Measured scan of single mutants.
Amino acid sequence: MKVMIRKTATGHSAYVAKKDLEELIVEMENPALWGGKVTLANGWQLELPAMAADTPLPITVEARKL
């Protein structure tokens, strides 16, 4: 699914347009965010693609819901 990742004042957030859902990312498998699992505030887990740590945000990526 397409997910937009952006930086907020409190960390990172994910927006899933198909579900009209925006949630804070509360847990990251990798400190650089990319190439691992993230957990959203509502409990969803997404697998993000591997990208460079300095990838500019906001960005829309293809993520997989676990």
Rank of each mutant, 00 (worst) to 15 (best):
L40E: 00
V61S: 04
A50E: 13
A50M: 14
E23L: 15
T39I: 12
L46N: 00
T8M: 07
K37G: 05
A41D: 03
P31W: 07
V61Y: 00
M1V: 14
A14T: 05
A9F: 09
I5M: 00
A41H: 07
L46Y: 07
L57W: 07
G11Y: 06
E47D: 08
D20M: 12
L57R: 01
P31K: 11
M4V: 14
G11R: 02
P31V: 11
A53S: 11
K19N: 15
G43T: 01
W44N: 03
A41P: 02
W44F: 07
A63H: 04
V61P: 00
E27A: 13
E29Q: 09
Q45T: 13
M51I: 08
E62P: 08
K37P: 04
T60N: 06
Q45S: 08
L40W: 04
L21K: 10
M4I: 14
L46E: 00
N42K: 00
A63M: 06
E47H: 09
A50G: 09
K19I: 15
E62C: 14
L66W: 11
P56D: 08
E47S: 10
R6I: 11
A17T: 11
V16S: 06
W44S: 00
I25A: 01
K7P: 07
Q45E: 13
G36T: 04
G36K: 03
R6T: 11
P56W: 06
R64F: 13
W34D: 00
G11P: 02
A32G: 14
I59W: 07
A14S: 01
A52R: 10
D54R: 04
I59S: 04
I25D: 01
A17R: 09
L66S: 08
E29L: 06
K19R: 13
L57S: 01
L48P: 00
K18P: 10
E23K: 05
G36A: 05
N42D: 02
V26M: 07
H12E: 02
D54V: 05
V26Y: 06
K2D: 10
V3W: 01
T39E: 05
K2W: 14
A63F: 07
M4W: 07
T8Y: 08
M28Q: 11
L48D: 02
V61L: 08
W44Q: 03
G36Y: 05
M51C: 02
N30P: 01
K2G: 06
W34A: 02
A32H: 14
E23F: 15
D54H: 08
V38P: 01
A52E: 13
A53N: 10
A32K: 12
K65Y: 15
A17I: 15
L48I: 05
A17N: 08
K18D: 15
E29Y: 06
A9G: 11
E29W: 06
L33N: 03
P49I: 05
E22M: 09
A14H: 04
L33D: 02
E23N: 07
K18Y: 15
M51R: 06
T39F: 07
L40Y: 00
D20H: 13
K37C: 08
A63G: 06
M1W: 14
L24Q: 13
N42H: 02
A63L: 08
K2P: 09
D20V: 07
L24M: 14
T55E: 04
K19W: 15
D54W: 07
L33M: 13
A14M: 13
I25E: 00
P49V: 04
A14F: 09
M51G: 03
K18A: 15
W44V: 05
L40C: 05
A63S: 06
A50T: 10
A50Q: 12
E22G: 06
G36L: 06
P56I: 12
L46A: 00
N42V: 04
E22A: 08
T10M: 13
R64T: 12
W44E: 03
D20K: 12
T55I: 07
K19C: 15
P58Q: 04
K37Y: 11
E62L: 14
K65R: 12
L33W: 06
D54F: 06
I59D: 02
R64E: 09
R6C: 10
A63P: 01
M51Q: 04
A52M: 08
A41R: 07
A50Y: 13
E22V: 09
E29F: 05
L48Q: 00
M28S: 13
K2M: 15
L33F: 06
R64V: 13
K65Q: 14
K7S: 08
K37A: 07
N42E: 04
D54E: 10
G11K: 01
P56Q: 11
M28D: 00
I5P: 00
L21R: 11
W34R: 02
L46V: 05
I59G: 01
P56T: 13
V61E: 01
A63K: 01
D20P: 05
M4S: 12
V38G: 00
A32Y: 14
T8A: 09
E22Q: 08
H12I: 13
A41M: 09
L21V: 13
L57V: 05
K2H: 12
A9S: 11
N42G: 06
I25M: 00
W34I: 02
K2R: 12
L40I: 02
D20A: 11
K2S: 12
V26L: 08
K19P: 10
N42S: 08
G43I: 01
A14V: 15
P56G: 08
G43A: 01
A53T: 10
M51D: 01
K7Q: 10
K19H: 15
S13A: 12
L24K: 12
G35N: 05
Y15M: 09
T10Y: 12
L57H: 01
P58W: 08
T10A: 12
T55A: 06
T39D: 00
I5N: 03
A52W: 06
G35D: 04
P58V: 03
E62G: 07
A32N: 14
Q45L: 13
L66V: 14
T39V: 11
E23A: 14
I59K: 09
D54I: 06
P56L: 11
M1D: 03
E23D: 06
T55W: 02
K7H: 07
T60E: 14
L40T: 02
E22F: 09
A41W: 04
V3A: 01
E47Q: 13
I25Q: 01
W44P: 02
T39Q: 06
A50I: 13
T10R: 12
E62A: 10
T10F: 13
P58G: 03
P56A: 11
L24G: 08
L48E: 01
I25F: 05
D54P: 02
L21D: 03
K19V: 15
K18N: 14
L46W: 02
V3L: 07
N42Q: 00
G11I: 02
L48F: 04
L21C: 14
M4A: 07
A53Q: 10
M28N: 07
Y15I: 10
E22Y: 10
P31S: 09
A53P: 13
R64W: 12
R6Y: 11
P58D: 03
L21T: 10
T60V: 12
P49A: 02
L40P: 00
R64Y: 13
E62Q: 12
G11N: 03
S13H: 09
V3Q: 00
N30Q: 10
L21H: 10
